[in-house]
Each structure stands twice: as C-alpha cells, then as structure tokens.
C-alpha cells in the first residue's frame, strides 16, 4: 500500500517538474515543442550512462562514468540543454511557430529511431537497465524503502525547481518571454533579442526535462524506447493544458489530475475479468477526452495564468487618479471605430 502511494507521489512530482519545463517553453514563450519527450529521454539516458559503471556486461552504452547522485542527474539535465542548443540553432532562427512544431516532431522521430536502432549509444531497443538506485547503499535501503525515500527526494527537487521557476517567470525575463509569445514582432520592436530570449526559454525548459528524465530512469532502474514513444509529449501537454498554461501551480494541479489520477491510479485497479489490458486503453482514451473537454470549456486551464497587479511591483495604489480619469469618458468611452486601414 505504502509502495503504491509513494509511486504515485513520485510520478506526481516528476511530472510537475516536466510540466514546468514545458510550461516555460510553451506557456510562457509560445514555443510548441512537440519534441519535448525527446529532451526527457536525453536526460534519462545521459543520467543513466553518467551513473552506471563502464563495465556492465550485456549492455552497450557510451560514457559509463559512475557518477553518484545527484551529479549524474545534473549531467542529464545539462545534456538535455546541450541538445536544446543544437535544436534551437537548427529551428528557431528560421521558422515560424507552426513550421517549428512540425520540424520538432520530425526531429523527435529521428532521435527516437536513432536511439532505438543504434545500439552502441544507449543499448538500442533494449535500453538501459540495472541503473544504480541512488542512496540505497548510503542509507541501507531495500526495494520498498527506496521508493519512499526517492519519492521524497523527487519532491524536494521539485520544490526547489518550482522556487527557481517562479522567480524566473515573475521576473522581467518571464515578462519578456510572454511578450514574445503574444507578439514577437512587437517584442523585437521594443528591443528584445527574440532569438536569444527563445533560446533561454528552450534551455531552461530542457534542463527541467532532463532532470525529470534523470529522476525517472533512477526510480525505475531502467529506460528504453517504449518509455518515450513520441506520443508521450502529448501527455505532458495534457498536464499543462488541464493545469493551466502559464501558471506554475497549475502544473502541479495538472500533474495531480492527469498523470497521477488518470494515468497511474487506474493501473493499480484490479483487471476487468476477461479483458486484460482494457483499463490501460480506457485511460489513454480518457486523457484524450479530458484534453478535448478542457480545450472546449476551459482553455485557460484549472488554474489560469496569473494577473500581475500593479501593487505587486511595490508602488502604492492611487485611487484618486482612478476617480479623476472618469472625466475622460467622453474621449475614451465613446464607441471607437475599429482602427482599420485609416482613410479608406
């Protein structure tokens, strides 16, 4: 029972991290990163090969550095960032949002095929297994207590990353990203280096993807191509859209509802007699349905993007001006013709 609960806790916090990373890219900056799960996979694999020793027989992989936790995970996060630089240089400079999305999907398919078929990299279709479980030796953990401890460690990591992300999204940096999302031409006309800003957003988001992936491979002890089918990107998008694009707390709510309750909880339900695997099919369908219903009825998500009020900038309100401005009603209140092509 404890095992079940803490498995759910792990996935809750891990997807909270993943969703925050996608949120800064898509929710804040408007980059439709349909290759997101590719960055998660790079983080997972690189964490794996950074942590594993170089001499495990029966598996083929690069590096094998034997780094301890959390250095291996950090290495995974940085590797995902390195991939973001490459991807951004290929795609961001030249492409508009819609084309960018298509190119990113293609890139993630290429990466997938490559990892699946090129065995020397990450052991091909078999993937990595027997990945060392961190902290077990040091704390003398067994299989079950490891789950409890690692779920808590993931929770702490998630809270730290949330603190950092909240600071970034509330800062002028976050505002510049949202300006680019709303109208990149205007942002450019105001002196924002749009490419540089988008690159920053990609890098920060990819770091979160990489860390989330790194925690994933260590929790399960293995990672292979079935864990990151390109469709998995849309699960993270579902978390983001249900929770509320542009809101970090929303990412937690989304992770709780979509990842924990819809995807993982049903796996613990007893099988329906005579229909093995049916529950699994039902819950993927359920994610799709929930996504559609949300987009129709509440596209801003359960916890919509926050309005950052003037008082939060430390300048006191001056209600007397509010009152004085009513005098301008005859200027501003009158119906205004749509500002169209001028003299026509």
């Amino acid at each position: 029972m404890l095992y079940y609960v803490f498995t759910l806790v792990f996935f809750l916090f891990d997807y909270f991290i993943l969703a925050m990373g996608l949120n800064i890219q898509y929710g804040a900056t408007g980059i439709l990163n349909f290759a997101y799960i590719g960055f998660v996979a790079v983080g997972a694999y690189m964490t794996g090969v950074a942590g594993m020793p170089s001499n495990i027989t029966g598996q083929h992989y690069i590096l094998g550095l034997g780094l301890p936790f959390p250095l291996n995970t950090l290495f995974g996060g940085l590797s995902a960032m390195a991939m973001a630089v490459i991807v951004a240089l290929i795609t961001l400079r030249r492409l508009r949002t819609d084309y960018l999305a298509i190119v990113l999907i293609s890139l993630s398919l290429v990466l997938y095929d490559f990892c699946n078929n090129f065995v020397p990299l990450f052991n091909g279709a078999d993937g990595l297994y027997n990945v060392p479980a961190p902290l077990t030796k040091a704390l003398g953990l067994n299989v079950n207590s490891f789950i409890v401890v690692f779920a808590c460690v993931t929770g702490v990591v998630a809270l730290i990353l949330w603190f950092v992300m909240a600071r970034v999204t509330n800062a002028p940096l976050g505002r510049s990203l949202r300006a680019i999302r709303d109208d990149s031409t205007v942002a450019g006309a105001l002196g924002k280096d749009v490419f540089r800003m988008q690159l920053k957003s990609m890098l920060i988001g990819s770091f979160y993807a990489g860390i989330g992936g790194g925690l994933l491979i260590q929790f399960g002890g293995s990672f292979n191509p079935t864990a990151w089918l390109p469709g998995e990107t849309f699960v993270v998008f579902a978390v983001l859209i249900v929770g509320g694009a542009g809101n970090n707390i929303g990412m937690f709510v989304g992770a709780l509802l979509v990842e924990t309750l819809l995807i993982h909880l049903p796996a613990f339900l007893p099988e329906i007699p005579g229909h093995p695997g049916l529950i699994e099919y039902i819950d993927s369908a359920l994610v799709g349905i929930v996504l559609m219903v949300m987009l129709w009825t509440r596209p801003q998500g359960i916890v919509p993007e926050r309005v950052r009020r003037a008082v939060t900038f430390g300048v006191p309100d001056r209600p007397e001006i509010d009152a004085r401005e009513l005098g301008s009603a005859e200027v501003l209140g009158a119906p205004v013709a749509a500002a169209t092509e001028g003299a026509k």
Binding site: P172, R175, R178, A179, L190, R308, A339
Partner: peptide, 16 residues
C-alpha cells in the same frame, strides 16, 4: 493596427 501584448496587463505592456 494596434498590436498590444494581449496576455500582459496594460502596466506590463509598458514594463516590457
């Protein structure tokens, strides 16, 4: 044609 940063508040439009 006015191009406001629609998701930002009026104040944030200036702060940007």
């Amino acid at each position: 044609l006015s191009r406001e940063l629609g998701g930002l508040t009026v104040l944030e439009n200036l702060l940007a």
